[in-house]
Design a protein around this nucleic acid. Structure first.
Lengths: 232, 232
DNA sequence: CGGCTAATCGGGCGGCTGTACGATTAGCCC
DNA sequence: GGGCTAATCGTACAGCCGCCCGATTAGCCG
């Protein structure tokens, strides 16, 4: 498939360095064949993006949506989207090009807005379900009943709390992607998964709120040894 | 300055759509003048990135490093890096191009690795200082003393906890950037700042950090993201 | 077989790119 | 003024880009 060939080229050279002739060569066809099936290079790239969403992202979302528990839904997303291996890495590197593209191409910006809206909604539902079924700890001011455990309908406050959690969840995931899938990454996907999963639960310290003995005897000089080290 | 002109062009058209002639036109000089001062278009772009770091990012890092308290240091970073207005927006949009670029240009990947290493170190120092001076709540297993309140030196466990917090802080910031500075953003920079600040404190605990009573009341955990506040 | 269509091919074209380079100017020192 | 250098200019050129389009092939049907 030409789209797969194009995807391969993009993974190697990047979105902006991918030419019609590259795609044709990778697909072992002539350039005319590419322009025969697609209106232009832009349509090829758009199709790659669309296929990538369909093949990689959507199955994960579907399995998350089908999870019986809220916590399981979010866990599916974490393990699926922050997976090990080249597949996930290439997917996110492509997505990075997508981000940059959407800054100056309004059509892509609009599309991305829709994708994020769906993602937010899905994660929000996961949180709400988790609050309701007890698989996720409720934030302050929310009870399982308020999340819809009995009635099936969440209160406005629970809805807002779940939405805030969803925005944070998605942001944390996006940021971890940057740190674990770019070249020269300093953390592994496994570490990223762990960090994201622990964020699902408030790091409620094992009580002992008052038993911590030591008073900070002095203001502490806040040692800041070296300033931000410059580079040439 | 030619670099400023180039920065303007990049902000409008994007990194890959910026040509020598665009830069020359924006700087009101001839193309030959650009190639006289720079070895090529690549050097122009690299110089723009370097200048952007020097002018925007480094002052914020410096003010964070100079903050007397750990919490204040991180607050400086949040308010400076997730600011309102076009300046911060353009900075992060340029940074997005940088991410995409570093995927396939190893020199940029290496540079970015160094920048993230510095960023992690700075945030980690902020957390450690905050644990020690009581301005930030200690995570499980860490005490102010362990963070170096008395000795000035943190234990390995406190160091690791602060590093984990730093990775999470940076990831959350990067992810919020994506959601609030891209076109069609669904959250505002103000909402992003609020989300990041509440992440500094364990979300579900209304009690104060147990260190000292004279602490002004905290925004409390109920920070509801308002509706999608777009901007032009 | 003749006729039709879908698919493929590849040469060619106009346009834009980065870069090289000689011509020109401005400032400065002796 | 004469000589030198830094800076600027604009044209020229080779190369690559997306895209067009006529030629060619393969498959199918009556």
């Amino acid at each position: 498939m030409l789209v797969q060939a194009a995807r391969q080229v993009i993974a190697e050279r990047g979105l902006h360095a991918t030419t019609l002739r590259d795609v044709a060569a990778a697909g072992e066809v002539a350039v005319g064949t590419v322009t025969y099936h697609f209106s232009g290079i832009a349509e090829v790239l758009a199709e790659v993006l669309r296929a990538e969403m369909r093949d990689y992202s959507e199955p994960i979302m579907a399995s998350a949506a089908a999870a019986p528990e809220g916590r399981e839904a979010l866990r599916h997303m974490v393990s699926g989207l922050l997976a090990d291996g080249r597949r996930a890495r290439d997917h996110w590197r492509l997505w990075l090009d997508f981000w940059a593209l959407s800054v100056h191409e309004s059509a892509y910006a609009q599309w991305q807005r829709e994708i994020y809206a769906q993602l937010h909604a899905l994660v929000q539902r996961g949180y709400l379900a988790g609050y309701a079924d007890g698989s996720l700890p409720c934030p302050a001011g929310v009870t399982p009943a308020a999340a819809g455990a009995d009635s099936g309908r969440a209160t406005a406050a629970a809805d807002a709390a779940a939405r805030e959690a969803a925005v944070r969840f998605v942001a944390l995931m996006d940021g971890l992607v940057v740190q674990c899938y770019l070249p020269q990454a300093v953390i592994s996907p496994a570490t990223a998964r762990e960090l994201l999963l622990t964020a699902l639960f408030p790091p409620s310290r094992p009580s002992l709120p008052a038993s911590r003995p030591p008073e900070p005897s002095r203001p502490a000089p806040t040692g800041v040894p070296g300033g931000p080290t410059d580079r040439a």
